[in-house]
Amino acid sequence: MYDILERRSFLAMLLVVSLAFLFLIKPFTGPIFWAVAIAVIFNPVQLWLLRRLPGRHNLVAFLSLILCLVIVILPSLALISSLITEGVGLYQRVQSGELNPGQYIDQINQAFPAIQSFLDRFDVDLNKLREGAVSTFVGGSKLVAKQALGIGQNTFQFFLSFSLMVYLAFFLLRDGSRLIDLLIRALPLGDERERLLFAKFAEVTRATVKGNLLVAAAQGALGGFIFWVLGIGGALLWGVVMAIASLIPAVGAALVWVPAALYLAAIGDYVHAAILTAFGVLVIGLADNLLRPILVGRDTKLPDYMVLLSTLGGIVMFGINGFVMGPLVAALFVAFWGIFIREFNDPARAALEEAVEGADGCGES
């Protein structure tokens, strides 16, 4: 009886201390997550280097991290810096009245009166739609300017988070396999389930970051390029907006280039409008269909509705990191329920499938 009381007391204290530790590191959720993501994504590079430099774990982790900095992090920081500069300039132009988003919408409405007739069928008030679009545009530019000011005022916090991410990534690259083995021994979920969940976590993290973000970057780069070629102002800014919008299923980057093409047609620039439309449909639109199966793989792709819900929910809960963390949580949700259905809801069928798989393996061997 006393042993049971001791065990329960210890487990209760273990839970309390673990929750206290999680609360302690909560302010650093972003750096910790991206350090884990870096370790997962660059693990194949780590293993490749270890085969050529056996036993040099510190050197291999350092080289992997340097490769990550050169390929991913430093270009991202340069892009963010340029984006903030353009965003601040755009906000200043809106504030001074030099740029009037409502005027562009009015020009489109005057050039294409059929739009008003189409919206009337669904009882949509174009004036309210116009006001909402203008307020969204102004609010977005104001948000970028505010973030730029915040980064300037919190430079120390930014570099602290960045340094913490790099520092943790080094140790996770070096000791990642040992940490996973330790977690498998510690967690009371069953070793096979834990290995499956860790494998799913790594698979989805690679798919989300390497796949979704690279596809988004490709579509944003293509969109920014065609805007620059056509002489549309703020090409870099709109390219980044298209990259973010491309994470939204079904609509994607078309949220940006379609209104731009309509505006070009409204002001009589039919050649540029046709070029932008053709490029948007044939190049930007097809980039998703061509690149995503290659980079992500069909097995890890969530349904579009779940990607949409998890992405928007992730942004609300985790901020900008939610673009990755939201779909990751959704994928783990699906994985947990898949294990439950297979092992608990229909154990006889699960045992039969395992027996069949084992027989197939013996037959192949």
Rank of each mutant, 00 (worst) to 15 (best):
L11T: 13
L11G: 07
L22N: 10
F23K: 13
N43M: 11
L50R: 15
R51N: 15
P54E: 03
F62D: 11
L67S: 12
L69V: 13
L69Y: 04
V72P: 05
S76I: 11
S76N: 09
L77E: 10
A78P: 00
T85E: 14
G87Y: 00
Y91W: 08
S96T: 08
L99R: 04
I105Y: 01
D106E: 07
I108N: 03
F122T: 14
V134L: 02
K142W: 08
V144E: 02
N154F: 08
Q157V: 15
Q157T: 15
G176S: 04
L179G: 02
D181G: 08
I184S: 02
R185N: 11
L187N: 00
R193H: 10
F198N: 04
A199R: 11
K200T: 14
R206Y: 08
V209M: 02
K210H: 06
K210G: 05
L213T: 10
A217P: 01
A217I: 05
L222P: 00
A250W: 14
G252A: 12
G252F: 10
A254T: 13
W257G: 05
L262Y: 07
L264D: 03
L264C: 08
A265R: 00
A274S: 14
A274T: 15
G280F: 03
V281S: 03
V283W: 00
G285A: 03
A287L: 01
V296H: 03
G297H: 01
D299E: 15
K301M: 15
D304Y: 12
Y305M: 11
L312S: 00
L312F: 09
M317K: 10
F318H: 06
F318P: 08
N321P: 05
N321C: 07
F323T: 05
V329Y: 09
A331Q: 06
F333P: 04
A335G: 10
A335P: 10
R342P: 03
E343Q: 15
N345D: 12
D346P: 08
E353G: 01
V356M: 13
V356N: 10
G361W: 07
